[in-house]
Each structure stands twice: as C-alpha cells, then as structure tokens.
Design a protein around this nucleic acid. Structure first.
Lengths: 168, 168
DNA sequence: CTTGGAAAGTCAACAAGGCTGACATAAAAA
DNA sequence: TTTTTATGTCAGCCTTGTTGACTTTCCAAG
C-alpha cells in the first residue's frame, strides 16, 4: 500500500515535506506533555514523581516481575531505581517477595493500596486516551498505533514483549 | 462519524477495553523514548541535554521569538530557561537581539552554527519519523495526527498556534 | 564442597534541570 | 513621575539520573 505511486505520478514520500515532519515532532512533544500532565498533578499532591508512577505502572502490568526485569524495562541503574522502589515499599504500595525457585530474586507486587494508587494515577490518563480514541475514530486509532510502533526501538520492544515473570 | 452505532448494534466505545487503553499508554511511553533516543546521543556527545535541544528546536521554528514566548511554550521558569539559554548564547548557537519596537524584549535567532547543530540533532529524529510515516502509510499518518492532537492540552495548543513574533 | 558469579541492596558523591524567592536594570505605559 | 513589564541573575532546594565501591545471599559449576 505504501510505495505505490500516487495519482500525481509521485509517491507518498512526496507529501512528507520537512515542515510536515517537524510538525510531527512537535506533535509528539506536546502530546506527550498532555499525556503526562494528569498523573503529574496527582503525583505532586502526594509527594511522588514520575519515576514512582512508572514503577507502579509496570508492576501493575506484570505482577511478580523481578527487580532485574524492571531495571531492563525502565533502562535506569539499580541505584536510581532502588531509591524510588524503597520509598514505594516503605509506604506500603509495593510488596517484595523472595523468589520460590531462585531465592536471590525478589518478585514485585502491588499491595491493595498500591493498586488503588495506580488506578488513581492512570485514571486521568486513561480518560484522556479514551476520549482521544473516541473522537478520532477507530481507523485513526489503528494508524496511531502503527506509527507509534514504528517509532519504538525494535530491540527494546522485542525484549519487553518477551517478558513473562511468573512464580512467587 | 464517531458516536454512530456500528454494524453490531454497539458502538466504537465497545472496542476500548481497559487493556487496550493501557497498551496505548505504554505505546506512548516507549515511542517517546525511541523518539528522543537519537538526539539524546548527539546531545550527550556535546555535553548538552534535552533542554538545550528544545530551545534550539523552537527558536529554529520561530526565528525572532521573544524570551517570554519561549518561556510560555516550554512551560518552565525563566531561571530554568536562563541557565540553558545562556550556555547556548555563550557557545555561539543562539543570538539575542534587542527588540526594535520594544527595546525591553530580546528576540532569539539561531546562528549559522546553531542552525547546523539543530539540523544535526533533528536528523535522526526526522529520519525515524519519516521511516515510520512511510512504512505505516499515509492513512495511518492521518490517524496518528488526529489522535495526537486530541491528546494535547487544548489551552496550551491554542496559545502555541497563535504565536507569531515578527520584528527584530 | 568450594568457589565463582548472579541478584539484590546500600552508601557516597556528582550532574542536569526542574523549582522558589529575592533582587536589579532598562524601558514602556499609565 | 510612577508603575509595570521584560529580562537577567544569585542562592538554595528537590528529583532523578549517573559512577564507583562494597556487602549479603544464594545458585550452579567445578
């Protein structure tokens, strides 16, 4: 479907002026800002930062994930993660269970309070995305997805998709 | 087009499970990371950060913009911007001209070196987006745009779109 | 069984880039 | 003349990233 010459004898590439590309870059910037603004407000009121939100999000998505896995997903150092994770554990939002098969590993879970907090954090974000999806329509959403996928780092994504930490 | 019931008697809303919405949230996170990774590498090699890139980008897009305008776009404090802007001016990438009509204002321009640097910074990003656009196809791109626009803060965007700093 | 390496955690020190508050100067506007 | 606006600057704080060094616990290979 792409690469086929258009009616003007050119091809889809011709429509991608530098101006359009740069507008796309700005759109990503502003959209990402809008996208994080809701949780940011909730986080600030509770004395947390975006780093805490990321931990809560991924632990919610993959309960039982190990610390090492989380490190790989977030792409930060363990010292950096540890500061954030320690706070969340001390405040009772995240739980740290010793691995059953491998006792060196720690598997991460959200507590009831953590689940509640994560829900509160992502509520605005989910509402915003739901609204955007609804107003733009299903076809637009499909396109949105395709382009976003193309922008991700393929190496990174292959790694993330293959994660499957079970076991206590 | 939206809100019209589909062939199943339901409507598009039915397809938006919580799982899909949350996957969309993750897609934004990972895509944004991929999106910034190219310039980040260039910046690091030169001892700059993302904040410098943002300044170069917007000054390139709107030459002659005032400091106040840039502050409004970036949404940071002037103390924070000043640190970054000062470095760019001292290093000869940005120029600071006194306003003609209002001599209190400083209008910002990229120098030749600044234009070059900006180009180098955005090169990878533009290539990535161009590739994503091309592989996903024009229809997908239109949808991508629609959804991104819906995610931006409307207040913020109305403000940005109306900017037009002329004058020296 | 010993030993090497992996998983996790911690301390210290540093940098970028946000923030607030206080203050200074020049120029426009009232 | 006085007030307000636009800009710039100093000092100090916070979060979240970084390196480097070191410990404890435990698995696994020899």
């Amino acid at each position: 479907m792409n690469r086929t010459p258009g009616p003007m004898g050119g091809d889809a590439l011709l429509y991608l002026t530098d101006e359009q590309i740069r507008k796309g870059i700005e759109a990503m910037y502003f959209a990402y800002r809008g996208f994080t603004s809701d949780p940011d407000r909730v986080l600030e009121s509770r004395g947390y930062g975006r780093a805490h939100h990321r931990v809560l999000h991924f632990v919610h998505r993959r309960p039982g994930m190990t610390v090492n896995t989380l490190l790989a997903i977030l792409g930060v150092t363990k010292q950096s993660l540890n500061r954030v994770l320690r706070a969340l554990i001390e405040d009772g939002f995240v739980e740290n269970r010793v691995g059953r098969r491998d006792k060196r590993e720690r598997h991460l879970y959200l507590t009831a309070a953590g689940t509640e907090f994560e829900k509160e954090l992502s509520e605005g974000q989910r509402g915003r995305m739901r609204g955007a999806y609804r107003r733009a329509g299903p076809q637009a959403v499909a396109g949105f997805w395709q382009v976003l996928e193309e922008m991700m780092d393929p190496e990174q994504m292959r790694q993330y998709m293959s994660l499957r930490d079970g076991g206590t």
